[in-house]
Amino acid sequence: MVYNNNPISRLQNIIEDILNSEGHYGREILGNIFNIERNDTASLYSILIDLIHLVRESRNQIERLSDNDIYLEPIVNVERAILRLELDSSLSNFKSSLGEHTLYGLKFSADLITRKYGEVTIDEQTIASIQQDVDALIEKLFNSNLPDSLRDILIEKLHNIRTAIIKVRITGIDGLKQALESSAGALFLHRDEVIKNNENEDVQGTISLLDKLNKIVSIGNSVKELVSFSKSLFLSPPE
């Protein structure tokens, strides 16, 4: 599996998985697709909200174009179905309302966006490697001797990155970039404290991970790399 910056392509892949799923209830099907425990109601509702946002993002992409009716129709059909989706109800009506015609329409619309704006991807192995690094760092930080305030900031931002990784099927590369930018902002805001503890292996590990994610996101989006975390934080003395 690869993850991309095309919202309609991501939407099409998720809807296809739902239609091909063997489960019956929304809680069961979404839990299986997004690897969430069925009793984790808060996380499942968060996924539903993110799916609605993905549909709106897909609509916005098409509505910018002229003569868009044929491309917009399958997205509108999906929006109606998702707004009626309930965790503890059968998805038989959802599945029956979205058949092969809708899937074909989504693929057609996704192809249009790819041809117009291009599509960039990150492979599953790269995402899995980042997630392993994030999980290992979070575990280490819980037992770190860093000042509580700095440790808590690092854990919070790493959790945000982990959430973006879990939701990458929905939010795509942009979700990872937003989590990275949020983490960078927090480090700059607390840069004096970071510099004071710059020899701590947990700080060094976090900086290295952000630098690694920065390169992946920057390369994937074909844009100039963000500021190098290690240089900007450690080589610039606090005022």
Results as ranks from 00 to 15, higher is better:
Met1Lys: 12
Met1Glu: 11
Val2Gly: 04
Val2Tyr: 12
Asn6Pro: 05
Pro7Leu: 07
Ile8His: 06
Arg10Phe: 07
Leu11Cys: 09
Ile14Ala: 08
Asp17His: 09
Asp17Met: 14
Ile18Ser: 06
Ile18Arg: 06
Asn20Gly: 07
Ser21His: 13
Gly23Gln: 09
His24Ala: 14
Glu28Lys: 10
Glu28Thr: 12
Leu30Gly: 05
Gly31Lys: 04
Asn32Met: 05
Asn32Lys: 13
Asn35Asp: 14
Ile36Ala: 03
Glu37Asp: 14
Arg38Thr: 12
Arg38Trp: 05
Arg38Val: 12
Asp40Gly: 04
Tyr45Glu: 13
Ile52Asn: 09
Leu54Ile: 04
Leu54Phe: 04
Val55Leu: 02
Val55Lys: 00
Arg56Phe: 03
Gln61Met: 05
Ile62Cys: 06
Arg64Glu: 12
Ser66Ile: 12
Asp67Ser: 10
Asp67Met: 05
Asp67Cys: 02
Asp69Trp: 00
Tyr71Glu: 04
Glu73Gly: 00
Pro74Ser: 05
Ile75Asn: 03
Ile75Cys: 06
Asn77Lys: 12
Val78Gly: 03
Glu79Val: 00
Ala81Cys: 09
Ile82Gly: 02
Arg84Lys: 15
Asp88Thr: 08
Ser89Ala: 13
Leu91Lys: 01
Lys95Glu: 08
Ser96Trp: 03
Ser96Thr: 10
Leu98Glu: 03
His101Gln: 13
Thr102Tyr: 01
Leu103Cys: 06
Gly105Ser: 06
Ser109Asn: 06
Asp111Arg: 09
Arg115Thr: 09
Arg115Phe: 09
Arg115Met: 10
Lys116Tyr: 12
Gly118Glu: 07
Val120Asn: 11
Thr121Lys: 15
Thr121Met: 11
Thr126Tyr: 01
Ala128Phe: 08
Ile130Phe: 09
Gln132Glu: 14
Asp133Ala: 13
Leu137His: 02
Ile138Val: 15
Leu141Val: 10
Leu141Met: 08
Phe142Ala: 08
Asn143Thr: 11
Leu146Ile: 10
Asp148Val: 14
Leu150Gly: 05
Ile153Trp: 02
Leu158His: 04
Ile161Met: 14
Ile161Trp: 01
Ala164Ser: 15
Ile165Arg: 01
Val168Tyr: 01
Arg169Asn: 08
Asp174Trp: 02
Leu176Phe: 07
Ser182Gly: 13
Ser182His: 11
Leu187Phe: 15
Phe188Ser: 08
His190Tyr: 15
Glu193Ser: 13
Glu193Phe: 04
Glu193Ile: 12
Val194Phe: 08
Lys196Met: 13
Asn197Trp: 11
Asn200Leu: 10
Asn200Lys: 10
Glu201Lys: 14
Asp202Ser: 11
Gln204Ala: 12
Gly205Ser: 09
Gly205His: 06
Thr206Ser: 12
Leu209Ser: 01
Leu213Ala: 02
Leu213Met: 10
Lys215Thr: 06
Lys215Leu: 09
Lys215Cys: 00
Ile219Trp: 00
Gly220Cys: 03
Gly220Pro: 01
Lys224Pro: 00
Lys224Gly: 05
Glu225Pro: 12
Leu226His: 10
Phe229Met: 15
Ser230Lys: 15
Phe234His: 01
Ser236Glu: 11
Pro238Ala: 14
